[in-house]
């Protein structure tokens, strides 16, 4: 207890001789834990011994194998005349293809938004206290998850043959509004309605899963504060649910991008539709045309994935103590680390 500072210093310098400074070497009388550190800091600081990272030769071998395989694949892609890259170049930005791409984008965006909105309504209905809403929501989801999308589309396409006019009124009684079905249901409308109906059923389950993932305590706290129901949903529960809804819905969205290729069957020329029709006009170009479509779908999916990263990052606010770095931040920290290491090397 009555250790003089001199004793503390000597024990501190003794620690520097060892590899790692321990606060309690404690063979002799226990010194106060603070003192040795301070003393040794004023004297020569104890050198922390570097830990050499584990060598992983397996990784280098695996990298080499992957690189060789990738090179072979690229080589085949470039040199095989079967792919006809000149024709790919010819078709890639053709107006027919771009028109198709635009249709694909339009159908996707409309159906994704309508599908998500429908899904939210269905999920809320499914989780509500009302047995009527719960049943309606369940039956809808059951029905549209059971019927193949192509059947829904073809059915809607032929809808105008079954019902020439649509009217809003009392069943078996007078009609208030009457619509001419053929004018209302353009091919675009049929496609969007069909995809949205289908999408809503799946989105409902994605949204429901997200809402269920929010802790019960959050509902209770919101309720105990007397927050109005709508506020509870819009500001407390849904934003937290989005954290798990976003990755699942993006998955769904990517499926939707490709499902739009089915609208070809309701005579809408989307990206795949234009490729298909050009392919039948120029049978020799079918492979480069398919490559064009594949490349565009790849680009669309990549864009969606990038957007996903930032949206997820936004909604993880508060859930994580530190947000994951953006690619730009990663590059920056990587560079500054390299610079720091270089400085350390030169200092040696």
């Amino acid at each position: 207890m009555s250790d003089s500072p001199g004793v503390a210093v000597s024990s501190g310098t003794a620690a520097t001789a060892e590899t790692i400074p321990r606060p309690e070497p404690a063979a002799s009388a226990p010194p106060p834990p603070e003192l040795p550190k301070k003393a040794s800091a004023s004297a020569t600081p104890p050198k922390a011994q570097r830990v050499l990272p584990l060598r992983r030769p397996g990784r280098w071998i695996a990298t080499a194998i992957v690189l060789v395989l990738a090179a072979q694949f690229v080589h085949g892609l470039i040199t095989n005349p079967f792919y006809q890259w000149d024709r790919f170049q010819y078709w890639f930005l053709r107006p027919t293809i771009l028109d198709g791409l635009l249709i694909t984008l339009e159908v996707t965006v409309y159906s994704a938004v309508l599908g998500l909105l429908g899904g939210i309504v269905l999920a809320v209905a499914r989780l509500s206290d009302s047995p009527v809403l719960r049943t309606v929501s369940w039956v809808y989801t059951w029905l549209f998850r059971s019927v193949p999308l192509i059947v829904v589309l073809l059915f809607l396409y032929n809808f105008s043959a079954l019902y020439q006019t649509l009217s809003l009124g009392i069943p078996f009684g007078p009609a208030f509004f009457t619509f001419d079905e053929n004018r209302l249901a353009t091919d675009m409308v049929v496609a969007v309605v069909g995809l949205s109906l289908n999408e809503a059923a799946y989105a409902a389950e994605v949204v429901r899963g997200g809402l269920l993932s929010v802790d019960q305590g959050q509902h209770e706290a919101a309720s105990a504060l007397g927050l109005p129901k709508r506020y509870q949903f819009a500001r407390i529960v849904f934003p937290q649910a989005l954290r798990s809804i976003v990755p699942n819905y993006v998955n769904q969205l990517i499926g939707l991008v490709k499902a739009t290729s089915l609208v070809f069957y309701v005579s809408l020329l989307d990206l795949f539709g234009s490729v298909q029709s050009m392919g039948s006009t120029y049978p020799g170009d079918i492979v480069p045309l398919l490559l064009v479509a594949t490349t565009w779908y790849l680009i669309l999916t990549s864009v969606v994935s990038v957007v996903q990263f930032y949206v997820e990052r936004h909604y993880s606010r508060g859930a994580l103590r530190t947000l994951p770095p953006t690619p730009l931040q990663k590059v920056r920290t990587g560079l500054s680390e390299l610079r720091a290491r270089a400085r350390r090397e030169t200092a040696k």
């Binding site: 802790d215 305590g217 959050q218 209770e220 706290a221 919101a222 309720s223 105990a224 504060l225 007397g226 407390i236 934003p239 937290q240 909604y315 606010r317 508060g318 859930a319």
Partner: peptide, 16 residues
């Protein structure tokens, strides 16, 4: 409920 405050065992703050 606005007239009754409630403090939970697990705080239940809104994390977002």
């Amino acid at each position: 409920r606005g007239r009754i405050g409630f403090v939970f065992q697990n705080f239940n703050l809104f994390p977002h």
